[in-house]
Design a protein around this nucleic acid. Structure first.
Lengths: 248, 248
DNA sequence: CTTACTAAAAGTCCTATTGACCTTAAGTCG
DNA sequence: CGACTTAAGGTCAATAGGACTTTTAGTAAG
């Protein structure tokens, strides 16, 4: 029941949890990456993550890593399991499989309150994916799949509001969609969709005066989790493409 | 770096792959289950699955188990990773996490060509989920999530055709939707949707004469994988509920 | 041969959604 | 005050889809 030489033997493996933590900063979709301080892939960028500990649940490990890396409070964010990656060659040190999680957080004031000494930093997703030297391990693939999942989630669920700090405006929310999807939406039609979908957002009654234009009504997250009918990407044909367009 | 007593230590775990294999038989959604021949959960029903072997990829392990259990050829089916379950108490023998896969196959002539001696058999999903004595391990939860995933996949993708043996009729395909979703659809509107969606099905030109009614045109699977716009459950309001309705 | 019956296939009608576009409201700045 | 900007709200037409009807093409019974 131990490994080596018998190909039919069970394999003892180490399990890690890796996090794709997205936020919308400076009107771009950004992902939290660390620079690896030791081999393998020393000096390369990687997704934050770590080994699961004895007796620890997967979700708990993901939440722990998230807090170590960002110091966020668990309530304000969206966390879901993405997929498990287990190719034998993905880690040169041996058989390590990783359970990837997708986290969506608002643009936190604390960027990297890492208990961890490793330097964690936000980087624009489109830029990371275009870079010649990719991420460590199979993290490029994970990041790509996370991006696709996030884009898809915005179609069918209300998670986009997880990127917003309450209270927020309809324009704030629209900006999330535009940044994640990589193209502009019609402001008027977007408002209609959001406000007429029960439980997507609820008005606070307050308004926010901004530098330019009419003051915008403020909202908080509603109770609905699913969008039906969905808000499809195919619809809302692009007014103008954003930089992220280069990815697809 | 070994386990016990230090809660911050990494845990060496065993990894299994468990399969939720769905098919549509006798106008019901059925799942392939095995009866466990040894502890733990001896005599209880469980999802087919097994340990990953040294150097084996997750997908390869899933495919291998699938073939051991059903003897299907890999080409005719749909296989996707569902989710990973890793609660520390899920297996009384120790730390074992499982990567669950969802497989959709047509009603195979060979029901259980198991190389494996264990008795595998098709059982109606609704019946299994209603039974007092549940499945072994956390397989009830996995089965429930697999069912929800399958239902959702039918909305957004063309995988329903993976349940059909080519060539098939529009009614065959509609039957898949009705059985998986648990309610009747309007035959006319369903045909319109399927035939007007590019790449969902393509006509063979042949017809199948049946006992009753006008002969039906035959189709094979199209090249499209995604349905846009989707075919939502919320729409197509139920004509009459089927037995599966009890689940929701 | 004719009629009844069934299911397939095709068409009609109406409503809801939504993309494109326009108008008005409410603030700032010069 | 007028120019400008964004929010908010409305109109219009195209489309998708639910409910329903009609026609087609087969089988089985009389």
């Amino acid at each position: 029941m131990i490994n080596r030489s018998d190909s039919r033997a069970r394999e003892q493996v180490l399990v890690t949890v890796d996090l794709v933590i997205f936020t919308v900063r400076e009107d771009r979709l950004q992902v939290l990456l660390i620079e690896r301080g030791q081999p393998p892939f020393e000096g390369r960028l990687a997704l934050p993550g770590g080994y699961i500990r004895v007796g620890e649940r997967l979700d708990a490990a993901a939440l722990r890593e998230l807090q170590e890396e960002t110091g966020v409070d668990g309530s304000q964010l969206h966390l879901e399991q993405l997929r498990t990656y287990g190719d034998p060659e993905r880690d040169p040190r041996g058989r390590v499989i990783t359970v990837a999680y997708l986290a969506l957080t608002p643009d936190m004031p604390v960027a990297r309150a890492g208990t961890d000494a490793r330097s964690a930093d936000w980087r624009p997703v489109d830029q990371v994916l275009q870079e010649e030297a990719g991420l460590a391990f199979d993290h490029d693939v994970i990041l790509r799949e996370a991006l696709e999942r996030a884009r898809s989630q915005l179609e069918y669920t209300t998670v986009a509001s997880a990127f917003c700090i309450e209270p927020f405006t309809i324009a704030d929310l629209r900006c999330v969609y535009e940044v994640v999807w990589g193209f502009k939406l019609d402001p008027s039609n977007f408002r209609r969709k959001v406000t007429r979908t029960d439980g997507f957002v609820e008005p606070t009654g307050e308004h926010r005066v901004q530098e330019l234009g009419r003051p915008a009504a403020l909202y908080r997250r509603g109770t609905a989790r699913l969008l039906s009918p969905p808000l499809l990407r195919s619809s809302e044909v692009a007014h103008s493409q954003l930089s992220t367009a280069a990815l697809r």
